[in-house]
Amino acid sequence: MTEKRKLRILVAKPGLDGHDRGAKVVARSLRDAGMEVIYTGLHQTPEMIVSSAIQEDVDAVGLSIMSGAHMTLMPAVVKGLKEKGAEDIMVFGGGIIPDDDIPLLKEKGIDGIFTPGTSTEKIVEWIQQNVSPR
């Protein structure tokens, strides 16, 4: 067989806010960088995201949260993946996240945090440097 490995990334929007523009822009940039992006739509619970990530065998999960609930939702996804034995799936996130929260989130296993104003190139670059097909 001829190997053709591609990065697979789940882009998800946990929580109650309906602002999915950012998530869609990121999804497009990742596609344009040659990645396969699974987009699951709005209002996902952490359990749903974990289940999708495992079924889709993704390399990383990107979470977009605008509602301010990142301190609960992001670690919940990391925890859920760990419980299912899928801690090798990386988690990154973006949204309106105060600077003070960033070290705490990193401590809880969110590997990359992108705040408003981050260019999509930077996100793509971060993934290419930190994530590889499992």
Binding site: K6, E36, I38, T40, Q55, E56
Partner: peptide, 30 residues
């Protein structure tokens, strides 16, 4: 995408009711 080789796979969006059901497995392919 024939240009980048990437893809956006969005079929799951319409099947989210089943995402916590152990009897359902959904996989997207490009």
């Amino acid at each position: 995408s024939p240009f980048s080789g990437g893809a956006i796979l969005g079929d799951r969006i319409r099947m989210q009711d089943h995402s916590l059901d152990d009897g359902v497995f959904i996989r997207s392919f490009a």
